Simulated scan of single mutants.
Amino acid sequence: MIYIVMGVSGAGKTRIGELLAERLSCSFTDGDAFHSEANKEKMHRGIPLTDDDRWPWLKTIRAAIEDKQRAGETAVFTCSSLKRSYRDVLRGGNSDVRFVYLKGTFEVLKARLGARTEHFFDASLLQSQLDTLEAPGTDEAIEVSIDPTPEQIVDNVVAQIQPR
């Protein structure tokens, strides 16, 4: 099974992804590592990415997912996965890819981004990401609030994936 922890910047994807992978005893891959230098530079300068910027990035993540699937491994990835069409690329028509949507309010997300250092994402892009976000339905993702502690969030996610 492949789990993709998704949400806008500041939702805690990396921290939750790392903790979830630890809990599931599997590998963790941060989708940000697949961004091109040009994408990172745009975001650093506060310029929103376009679909044309994102498609190669998403396809590269999908290739990494396929590698894990071919190896028969469970893995956790992170990716903002803002639109359903992006999630469709990552899913690749495969029911063994499950999304975990980290949902938070603008105020909480903005505060988290303001406290972050040494990240290429310019906090001014938060509203752009929220405007782009097509929140997944229950048919697509496990939805969890980002308000509890990271450990509680992972407890919630694990409780929802265990019966599957």
Rank of each mutant, 00 (worst) to 15 (best):
V158H: 15
A141H: 02
Q129Y: 04
K68C: 09
A63F: 00
P56D: 12
P148F: 10
G104W: 09
K59I: 04
T74Q: 15
S145E: 11
D67C: 05
P48N: 12
A75P: 03
L133A: 02
L109C: 04
L133F: 00
E134A: 02
T138R: 13
F121W: 07
K42I: 11
S36H: 07
Q129K: 07
Q69A: 10
L102Q: 07
E143G: 00
T117N: 11
D139F: 05
V108L: 15
L125K: 03
S128E: 13
R112L: 10
D67P: 00
D96P: 01
H119G: 00
D88P: 03
T149H: 06
V154Y: 11
S36T: 14
R87M: 05
L130T: 03
F106C: 02
S80I: 03
V157H: 07
E107A: 13
Y101T: 08
Y101A: 09
L130E: 07
I146N: 04
A123K: 13
I61M: 06
E118R: 09
E140D: 11
A141R: 07
K110N: 13
I146C: 04
C79L: 10
I146M: 09
K83F: 03
V157S: 03
G92Y: 13
G72L: 08
N156M: 12
F99V: 06
K40E: 12
I146E: 10
